[in-house]
Amino acid sequence: MRGVLPPEVINLSPNVWTEPFWRAAAEHRLVVPRCTACGTYRLPPSPFCFACRSQAVEWVEHPGTGTIYSFTVIRHAVIPQVRDALPLVAAVVELPGTGGCRLVGNVVDTDPEAVAVGAPVTTDWYDVREGTTVPVFRLRVP
């Protein structure tokens, strides 16, 4: 997979609220927490619904199709460990049907020049190591 960080700089630190997201990610499933009380989705997962303050949550599977809301092409290595991975396309992707929830990840295996705001993408998965998988995106031909 081209256009992702090397594994040594990806170290997740889930808590009780985010852990279900990462457990599903390890199974290559995208799940988004939805407030059981009022139906509002939220990302990242957090202890309270920002709309009704309920703590009750259900995890809803999402197909992972979305559109690029915004992005940057990282061309400078802030730390030496990322130098060989450049350029990196870091994108904010809006997930339809979630009330505007967004997911952040790399657009992989692409020419950065092909990436644009509004472009449709699908979610794919970068298996960083056993038990650690992060979402990435692929440009989708409409």
Partner: peptide, 24 residues
Amino acid sequence: PEGDFVQPSGLMAPGQMFAVLARR
């Protein structure tokens, strides 16, 4: 836990992050 949803994308500098706002 919140950084987990951004940092794996390579966004680790304020300038990179504000670039996303600028692009929008």
